[in-house]
Amino acid sequence: MNQEEILSWARSWVESNKLSKDAGDFAREKVSDIITQSTDVVEFTLDLEEALGMEDTGFDLDALAPKFATLTFAELADEIVKLAQSRKA
């Protein structure tokens, strides 16, 4: 997935889990301001790994989770793209 696709997936996930705020630029929202419960953070991470086809690869997104407090959704999507590219290299 590219950055736009990851962002779109995240927006859908937030909406389907009824976590979205009413207004604002989703891409600029901090992840931890929208996904506030520890179980939701984990579900989001696990579902994203499945969507990216990362499960059973021995690689996971746990290392990025501590950065949810400072990353926006757009920045998170960028980080994931960079991670995926570095894995392929």
Binding site: Q37, V41, A65, P66, K67, F68, A69
Partner: peptide, 15 residues
């Protein structure tokens, strides 16, 4: 910053 991010992550949510 790593410590700050980690503490925020470890204490996320209501517990």
């Amino acid at each position: 910053q790593e410590l700050i991010d980690s503490v925020r992550y470890f204490l996320v949510g209501e517990r």
